[in-house]
């Protein structure tokens, strides 16, 4: 039963008149969990509550089965965090800073641990430079190192790949995956860059306007959503889209480029209808396929908007 590391029930948080979290029921099991949602959907607020930095207005939040506000110290002892904003003491060298953090976690073998971490995140070459001279990518890597320093059971990373070039992103994500495989560290990664998560996550949480829209194992979700999405290429997408919009089997239609996409509720019937409609409208049906679920489609369907 204690499979879920993170669990919130009906979690509420308001800032004055702004409702940041609205009955949030979120779960994250062992493994690498992706936490996705638009800007302002409540990701950072949720993370703040999980760490005991922010107090909720209602509902419960637990990590490792412990209450996030009252037992936050014990939770933080077993968890590492990398926040959205990276503020590190600029005058310290990366190495010296990590030694300081290691001491707070009460690590016995400080220097070997720090050196290994620096190597793992690929920062050894800059370990003696003052942090203020680091680039954005180096900041993120230092952030990852300080999150992983206490060999945490779980590390929360808030937008770890923001501001990083594509190559740096791939390297960082690979590091995260390596860490999971090497030390069994579990991750909760918040982001709005979907392609990032596709490669490494096994669990996905989608949040919108302070509510969970869907969550589950990646492969279950892709199956669930892929079956109902179609991509159709016809000679006149506009006319075609307008026509199928009226069908009962079709929930939603949108056009991207010269392709028509639609979400259907009865694939069997729809499969047979498409060629008929095309010939009736005297349109040429170039291609017609059920989508393989990618994160982008899941996201588009749940949050209902093109991802950023």
């Amino acid at each position: 039963m204690e499979d879920q590391i993170i669990k919130t029930t009906n979690l509420m948080k308001t800032f004055g008149k702004v409702t940041a979290l609205n009955d949030l029921n979120m779960q994250a099991p062992k493994g690498i969990s992706g936490f996705i949602g638009k800007n302002g959907s409540g990701k950072t607020t949720t993370i703040g509550i999980l760490l005991g930095l922010i107090q909720s207005n209602g509902g419960t939040a637990t990590v490792f089965g412990l209450d996030c506000w009252h037992d936050s110290f014990e939770i933080r002892r077993r968890m590492g965090v990398m926040h959205e904003t990276n503020v590190y003491p600029g005058s310290f060298s990366g190495q010296r800073f990590l030694v300081h953090v290691a001491k707070l976690y009460g690590i016995s073998q400080i220097n070997p641990t720090v050196n290994e971490l620096l190597k793992d995140v690929g920062l050894t070459y800059a370990q003696d430079k003052p942090i203020k001279t680091y680039s954005a990518g180096m900041f993120k890597r230092l952030g990852l190192a300080q999150a992983l320093i206490g060999s945490p059971e779980m590390a929360i990373l808030d937008e770890p790949t923001a501001n990083i070039d594509p190559l740096g992103r791939i390297t960082l994500l690979k590091k995260i995956k390596d860490m999971h495989e090497k030390h069994g560290t579990n991750f909760l990664i918040s982001t709005h860059i979907l392609s990032d998560l596709e490669k490494i996550c096994n669990w996905l949480i989608i949040i919108d306007q302070g509510k969970i829209v869907d969550q589950g194992y990646m492969n279950n979700l892709t199956e669930k959503y892929s079956a109902s999405i179609y991509k159709i290429e016809v000679s006149n997408p506009q006319v075609f889209a307008e026509t199928i919009q009226k069908l009962d089997t079709v929930d939603k239609v949108w056009i991207e480029g010269d392709k028509v996409f639609c979400k259907v509720n009865n694939p069997e019937v729809f499969n047979e209808d498409i060629p008929k409609i095309a010939s009736k409208l005297k349109l040429r049906l170039k291609s017609f396929q059920q989508m393989l679920g990618t994160l982008e489609e899941i996201y588009t369907q749940t949050v209902g908007e093109k991802p950023t």
Binding site: G48, L53, F73, R76, R77, H83, T85, Y105
Partner: peptide, 11 residues
């Protein structure tokens, strides 16, 4: 600046 946030996230 968010520095306190980082520090209070340590044990």
């Amino acid at each position: 600046k968010g520095e306190l946030k980082r520090i209070l996230s340590y044990p």
